[in-house]
């Protein structure tokens, strides 16, 4: 199966996200650009321009009206998805690491980094109250003095936020009171990424300790562990199958001295119940930074530094074949460099 290669970033990708319907894909990178793509063929819909630093996170609300981005330029910005207009600029005192819309799309949360003498905060704004935006005054801000938040997702129904920390612990912060509802520590090292299942009942955490773990969103009960030999940068749960996909690889620091073979930059598919790897997709020549499943479950996108490549693939033979899963290789007009085909052709196991 041929991947679709998207080229729209000049520096490494930090996060990618589909909207709920899956027709659009948002990508952010360490350059300042926020890209929106048609997921069907990789055509770029447009960009959201305004950030002046690396963009760490992106989220889109359920009806694809607004897009939220957080950046190292100490700001979190709200955009109109269709027009690309900047609706709000929320300035912070340190870099914004994670952001997200709640289930209703009315409340946004974002966390800031512990840096430049500022500690890590988790901020909540209610978009229905324009005063909060105008005054840049969140209705609630929760300080996290111990270990900074590296990844966060909303729980179901928007009652709480599940945050993964640098220390490997995970906390549930109430969106009403800000108090810590639940606290667990299953990972020994930093949590690099957290993603919810499509029905929001489960979350998967990807950690530097070479594992990804599956949790129940509500109880934070540990359900499954998926082990690899390399740090896991990102993990996603298939919306239709009992599968998870994980991406990672040798840390960029060490890659320069070792071959791609040692790096293990493949995307790995695990069975959620058996915790066993059943498939691997090769093709990347650097660590995978982010993986995302298309909401219809038939496609899965992986991102790595440098270029932004979308892989269209069937995860199992049981998936019905449709035109979008047909082999195709598309390229953008007059943008980016042309990559050699052979490097990008994934091998399905």
């Amino acid at each position: 199966m041929k991947p679709i290669l998207l080229q729209g970033h000049e520096r490494s990708i930090t996060q990618i996200k589909y909207n709920r319907e899956g027709d659009l894909l948002f990508s952010v990178a360490k350059d300042t650009v926020v890209n929106a793509w048609y997921s069907v063929n990789g055509e770029r819909l447009g960009t959201y321009n305004g950030h002046t630093g690396a963009v760490w996170c992106v989220d889109c609300d359920w009806d694809t009206k607004n897009v939220l981005t957080g950046s190292a330029d100490n700001s979190c910005r709200l955009w109109d998805c269709e027009t690309g207009k900047q609706l709000a600029l929320l300035e912070t005192s340190s870099a914004v690491r994670t952001c997200g819309f709640d289930f209703s799309g009315n409340i946004i949360m974002f966390s800031t980094d512990k840096q430049m003498g500022y500690q890590c905060f988790l901020n909540f704004f209610d978009l229905r109250d324009p005063q909060q935006i105008k005054d840049n005054q969140p209705y609630m801000t929760v300080p996290c003095s111990e270990s900074k938040i590296t990844s966060a997702v909303w729980g179901p129904l928007g009652d709480y936020v599940i945050a993964g920390h640098e220390s490997g612990e995970m906390n549930q912060f109430s969106a009403k009171s800000g108090e810590v509802l639940k606290k667990i520590k299953e990972h020994t090292k930093q949590i690099n990424d957290m993603q919810s299942s499509v029905d929001l009942t489960m979350v998967i955490s990807a950690s530097k300790d070479n594992t990804a773990k599956l949790f129940d969103s509500t109880t934070l009960d540990h359900i499954k562990t998926f082990k690899t030999e390399r740090p896991v940068n990102s993990a996603a749960i298939s919306p239709i199958m009992d599968h998870v996909v994980m991406g990672g690889g040798q840390e960029a620091m060490e890659v320069t001295t070792t071959s791609t073979r040692i790096g293990k930059f493949e995307a790995r598919f695990f069975h959620a119940a058996y915790e066993e790897e059943f498939g691997r997709v090769k093709g990347h020549f650097g660590p995978i930074n982010c993986v995302a499943f298309h909401p219809d479950g038939k496609r899965n996108d992986r991102k790595q530094p440098g270029n932004c490549s979308t892989f269209t693939l069937r995860t199992t033979s049981s998936c019905p074949s449709d035109s979008s899963a047909e082999p195709q290789r598309l390229q953008q007009r007059g943008r980016g460099r042309l990559r050699e085909d052979s490097l990008l052709r994934p091998t399905l196991l």
């Binding site: 359920w62 009806d63 179901p156 129904l157 009992d242």
Partner: peptide, 23 residues
């Protein structure tokens, strides 16, 4: 795993009204 998923889906169904309200 199935048992867990069934329980989770059950809760999910129960919360359907809440979800509808929110969206």
């Amino acid at each position: 795993y199935r048992l867990y998923r069934e329980a989770a889906v059950q809760t999910l169904l129960e919360q359907k009204d809440l979800r509808l309200e929110l969206r």
